[in-house]
């Protein structure tokens, strides 16, 4: 599959770098810390709870996926980290910066350098009428306007990401999968230490989606950038080293390298996996029993 993907990308001049690709020293990643994050939003005149106390720690340079069905709060978590929304309560910290304490202009400044947010839908992240180079120039403009020099120039970045032959191709002329690669590249234009991508593989073919994920993994591994993506696709999520499952506005599970774990939040709550939930329907009383390997949830009627 990877070979096929390479072939199709080569047709448009794309060479997705492998782990052996030449790298330039990146700026490294930044840790992300969410603690007891609650988010309310108004809908039809009433407050609706979007997030009910999300705890999440992401190490610098780590790459993870926020997985879950639609409406569970994945995108909200990403927007709170990106600073485009403000949490109703809790702590949202990127590196040493508490985003809740920042003013709008400071959060904007952060997005021009430290944090890059790739929103859902390719066209929302690029100028379709512009070339790849122009898109990268545009993406860097915010940083330049603030007097910050991006760590690399557009050409340099494209070479770094193996997209050099796309430099002068207009986005509108590219296949959708390639456009998404450019969108990711544009997200990296300012050399962010945290790259957030909302459904970067949505509406892509599997091959294209794989290429996008490979590029993101490359960014994480070679440049040391912290990468958090949102996806509802378990296949895509499985390609990432860590997967956080968001359910009902909470962290439901944390899977590291294919091993899924339930997560105990700050209040001591644990979300049960769906298959377990069938055995223990809501309002079921359980007995919490220490065991040598951990903690067992037992029915009150259970007799050893």
């Amino acid at each position: 599959m990877r070979r096929a993907a390479r072939g199709s990308l080569d047709a448009v001049g794309v060479s997705v770098p492998g782990r052996h690709a030449t790298t330039t020293a990146g700026r490294g990643g930044v840790p992300v810390h969410l603690l007891g994050v609650v988010h309310l939003y108004r809908q039809a005149g009433e407050d609706v709870v979007g997030l009910r106390g999300v705890d999440l720690d992401v190490d610098a340079g780590e790459m993870l996926a926020l997985l879950g069905p639609s409406g569970m709060g994945k995108t909200t978590v990403l927007r709170l980290i990106a600073g485009v929304m403000t949490a109703s309560a809790g702590v949202v910290r990127v590196g040493e910066i508490d985003l809740r304490k920042l003013k709008s202009s400071e959060r904007r400044r952060l997005r021009a350098g430290e944090i890059s947010y790739i929103v859902q839908g390719t066209w929302a992240n690029v100028l379709p009428f512009a070339t790849t180079l122009e898109n990268l120039w545009f993406a860097q403009h915010g940083a330049r306007a603030q007097g910050r020099k991006p760590p690399w120039g557009p050409h340099e970045l494209l070479d770094l990401l193996g997209l050099g032959r796309l430099a002068n191709v207009r986005l509108a002329q590219m296949p959708r999968g390639v456009q998404q690669l450019v969108a990711v590249a544009a997200g990296m234009a300012t050399g962010p230490r945290l790259l957030l991508a909302d459904e970067p593989t949505a509406q892509l073919t599997l091959t294209a989606a794989f290429n996008v994920v490979q590029l993101l993994r490359h960014i994480s591994s070679e440049l040391g950038t912290t990468v958090i993506i949102v996806t509802h696709d378990t296949t895509i999520a499985s390609l990432l080293p860590r997967v956080i499952t968001i359910r009902d506005g909470r962290v439901g599970a944390d899977a590291i390298r294919g091993e899924e774990y339930a997560v105990v939040d700050a209040s001591g709550s644990v979300q049960l996996p769906p298959d377990v939930l069938e055995l223990l329907p809501p309002n079921t009383r359980v007995r919490v029993v220490r065991s040598p390997g951990g903690v067992d949830l037992r029915s009150p009627d259970w007799e050893p």
């Binding site: 485009v84 904007r108 021009a112 929302a124 992240n125 403009h141 915010g142 940083a143 306007a145 603030q146």
Partner: peptide, 8 residues
């Protein structure tokens, strides 16, 4: 997009 990229 400009807002997303932190334009002033």
């Amino acid at each position: 997009l400009a807002e997303l990229r932190g334009f002033r």
